[in-house]
Design a protein around this nucleic acid. Structure first.
Length: 295
DNA sequence: GACCAGGTAGCAA
DNA sequence: TTGCTACATGGT
């Protein structure tokens, strides 16, 4: 299945497991065993479209700052570099920035020190949009299950040497789904949002505006997309690192550790957090989120 | 059996 | 604008 193999070395530390399993992306699966359970150094697989081709990828961590990429296509390497931010930034500079700006050096420093290789992923837009529409009022484990259900029912199947992989469906493929079918896949009330949003989404023409505010507004036109979901899409699917999605975990972290950012409005918390931490505020959010959840 | 999970839409005031 | 409430589903 994989005739291409590459090593990617990062300038700074990379923690593959915590990056992929910290609720930023639901597009990867462990090769053996369930996600979000104890395991030392799992291999991850995904299957996706790139330039109209279906690409299968297997990823393993080989040292504290390198991964091995196996793929059926040469550009499997490019996909991994984009997803994990090989060229976009130096993680130590990002971490220095948010720790220096922190008003509660205790918790932020602790979170960064606990997960020094945690990065922000950069995944394709449409799968990220649908994944986070599914995420409302759901546990991370079940979101992952819903995404896998969508892949298996509507995505392209890639089969070779006894292993079977499914790509997340394109908007065109997913447009065949009905609300009834999606309810059978346990999407609950989100089924209608997914059908509606998929119908509105034109994969070729949709382009995220460059300004954060305009981009957020354009995402919120889709059904099931409010501020929090839009912000997740911007951060994990749009590469906008200044954006801070505020959910129940961040809300309680703010109440406990950052009272100066607190407000009745999650949107106001988000903007205060963004304003304070600046360009890398989304990283600050990711460290706090993962740290709170793994307590 | 209540309560909660990476919230949002729809409606009233 | 702000403040309710219903919404599917499964785990604790």
């Amino acid at each position: 299945m994989y005739d291409k193999e590459y090593d990617i070395k990062f300038d700074n530390t990379l923690d593959l497991k915590n990056t992929i399993e910290s609720g930023q992306t639901f597009l990867w699966n462990r090769e053996n065993g369930e996600m979000f359970s104890d395991s030392q150094n799992p291999a991850y697989t995904t299957c996706r479209y790139y330039q109209d081709e279906c690409v299968s990828i297997r990823l393993t961590q080989t040292s504290s700052n390198s991964v091995k990429v196996q793929s059926n296509k040469t550009f499997g390497k490019n996909i991994v570099e984009k997803t994990l931010g090989r060229h976009q930034y130096k993680l130590d500079e990002v971490q220095d920035s948010i720790i220096q700006k922190d008003t509660n050096n205790g918790i932020m420093k602790e979170a960064v020190n606990k997960y020094p290789g945690l990065r922000i992923v950069n995944e394709p837009l449409f799968p990220t949009l649908i994944s986070f529409i599914c995420s409302t009022q759901m546990r991370v484990e079940r979101i992952h299950q819903m995404v896998n259900n969508l892949k298996e029912k509507y995505g392209s199947k890639l089969e070779n040497a006894g292993s079977v992989r499914y790509a997340f469906p394109t908007a065109d493929q997913l447009s065949k789904a009905t609300v009834e079918e999606l309810r059978e896949l346990k999407l609950g009330y989100r089924a209608g949002y997914v059908v509606n949003t998929t119908g509105m989404f034109n994969e070729e023409e949709f382009d995220l505006p460059t300004s954060t505010e305009e981009a957020r507004k354009s995402l919120k036109q889709f059904k099931g997309v409010g501020t929090k979901v839009a912000d997740c899409v911007l951060l994990y699917g749009g590469g906008l690192w200044n954006v801070v999605p505020v959910d129940t975990w961040i809300k309680s972290a703010v109440e406990e550790h950052y009272p100066e950012f607190d407000s009745d409005s999650n949107e106001e918390i988000a903007r205060k957090f963004e304003e304070h931490f600046g360009d890398f505020a989304g990283f600050a959010q990711a460290y706090i989120f993962h740290y709170m959840r793994s307590e």
